[in-house]
Design a protein around this nucleic acid. Structure first.
Lengths: 347, 347
DNA sequence: CTGAAAGCGCTTACAG
DNA sequence: CTGAAAGCGCTTACAG
């Protein structure tokens, strides 16, 4: 590999000059610049990243910390991050943390040895210890899908999303609306709570009393959704609509409803949450959560912080969008219409 | 940030000694080692990655080059790579190349400035120029989902996969079997050709003559699958089974069949290819392609090459697996049985 | 506008 | 087993 000295010799200049044309900004005589560039081309010269990082104290690398959980959600966030970084000269290194328990351990290594210029933490609400460490390391950081006033943060408005979903169901005429969600999410404990608040707000606005038995725990899988659906339909007064708090759960709800002989949406309306790709094909009515946008916005905030540390860390909230498809209609007893095609029930 | 000099001073030793305890292997007196480790802990010392890379000429970073196409396939390969790297001290930087046209450009930067110790190239068959460049840069490289005898490579046996799928349909009693595939894949042009070869081999083994009109081009999307299905069913002698060469296409085939009033699988058997997550929920009979395993095997080969450059580059072939679900049965006219649950048709 | 030199924070023969 | 020194390949004041 050719080094900067080889280029300098080849071009008949000092290494400092080569470095200056490399940097771009500095003042170099046009003729000199051309000679140097020609020499670089001739030698196939590539600046050494490590040497550069060492003397610049900048790695041109961003670190993103994500839970290992290989869920669609994190993949989408990463996509958003990559998209936003496409135009820049930043590389990204991804660090996954296994379980919440190992957080302390994982974060001990954050920005380890100046491996990164900044860090994007996904779906982890930092504790005081982590905040102190980031501060001490002077490592610019942003939070994605989690928030703290001390750090630039970008979140989704889950209260608003669940509220809008519930409102939509209410608007259709449903009064017996159930919600199936995680009782507690290990990474972002607040989210399920927020959704349930949105759900209750919408009910309250419509003057509908919330029922404890309609708020049911469901694991984040088709199986979890199916179990919740079965329990719900076994109730003396089963709901006429179920808001599954992930599209994955909604698939299970659809399955279980089918097995129990229910016609969707005529006998039971179902809404998902997230709008994953499959949902379009299934005709699932759902809330689109701007996940990719989370990643993009996170990069935006980090780049800004890198350029100039903000006096007060900006807090961004992204709104969800209602996607009307075919799994939710007026309740059957209120004269529900069949959609043009029978709704599909996976099994 | 504390440096190695701070640690040396704190421990009352030379920096060389600190470096030796850092390295692990070297001979250091136990007492000295303890003093140094205590000093490191007290100072919260983290070795600087860039400095280390510069003097060691090793970055502890692997580069993976993937097409930008944000398909499920690449995400899965990346997962496999990350899984395989979990136990090691390697970080990975991901570089995406946009279009085949920009390959030259993208590869010009390969292993740029020693940013990586080795590279995993996904779904790109290298041309002579790239091979020469890798050789010149002495950059260990492996190919994943592409092969070249000059480089360690890992591929999926697509001939065998399509052959097994076709055999399965033949075994069920089908004789009019169509295949819907990409005419040409911009990244790995060979794959579709291989599948078609496997398809024809199976037909030949069964003494069934291949028909040109049953080999149809279909874009890699539900829409592409739907169009192909419509064209196929409009034939004077429509097929009784369709092998869609991706599960995504199979979804479209399912849709179109439904729209045309066909009952699946009674009137038409459908097989997918890939086994994406949705397929389980749809009950789609398909071939499971070991995509994650591609990534894992690629890492294995690269790590081996890093440890000791192989005399002859190993070539690994991964086999697909038949996943029997509910969309393929005996042809209707041969007394096809309904599955316990009607097959689901997304729309 | 440009060269010479110091320095970034490590590692690694070389002595001892 | 350990210290002092050179060197990895850049960047960046400092002079000129």
């Amino acid at each position: 590999m050719a080094t900067i000295r080889d280029v300098a010799r080849e071009a008949g200049v000092g290494v400092g000059t080569v470095s200056r044309v490399l940097g771009g900004g500095a003042q170099v005589a046009p003729a000199t610049r051309e000679r140097v560039e020609a020499a670089m081309a001739r030698l196939g010269y590539r600046p050494n990243t490590a040497a550069r990082a060492l003397s610049q104290r900048r790695t041109h690398t961003l670190e993103v910390v994500v839970p290992l959980v290989t869920r669609h959600f994190y993949v989408e966030v990463l996509r958003g991050i990559e998209e936003a970084l496409a135009g820049t000269d930043y590389a990204v290194v991804i660090r996954t943390i296994e379980r919440p328990a190992s957080r302390g351990h994982a974060f001990a290594a954050l920005g380890q040895g100046g491996r990164a210029d900044g860090v994007i933490v996904v779906s982890v609400t930092p504790d005081d210890d982590l905040l102190a460490r980031l501060e001490a390391a002077k490592l610019p950081a942003v939070l994605v899908d989690a928030a703290d006033l001390a750090l630039p943060s970008v979140v989704v408005d889950h209260v608003g999303a669940a509220r809008e979903a519930t409102r939509y169901l209410l608007g259709l005429g449903h009064r017996r609306i159930a919600i199936a969600d995680t009782p507690d999410d290990p990474f972002t404990p607040g989210v399920a709570v927020e959704r349930q608040r949105g759900y209750r707000m919408a009910l309250a606005e419509a003057g509908v009393l919330p029922r404890a038995e309609y708020q049911i725990a469901a694991e984040a899988s088709p199986e979890g959704g199916a179990a919740a659906c079965e329990a719900l339909l076994a109730l003396p007064e089963p709901p006429t609509a179920i808001l599954a708090c992930s599209d994955t759960r909604a698939v299970g709800v659809l399955q279980a409803a089918r097995k129990l002989g229910k016609r969707v949406p005529r006998d039971l309306s179902i809404m998902g949450y997230g709008d994953i790709e499959m949902s379009r094909h299934l005709g699932l009515t759902t809330m689109r959560i701007p996940v990719r946008e989370l990643g993009q916005a996170g990069v935006g905030l980090l780049l800004e912080a890198l350029a100039e540390p903000p006096a007060i860390p900006p807090q961004i909230t992204l709104e969800a969008e209602l996607i009307v498809r075919r799994t939710a209609v007026e309740p059957g007893q209120a004269g529900g219409k069949e959609p043009p095609w029978p709704v599909v029930t996976p099994f």
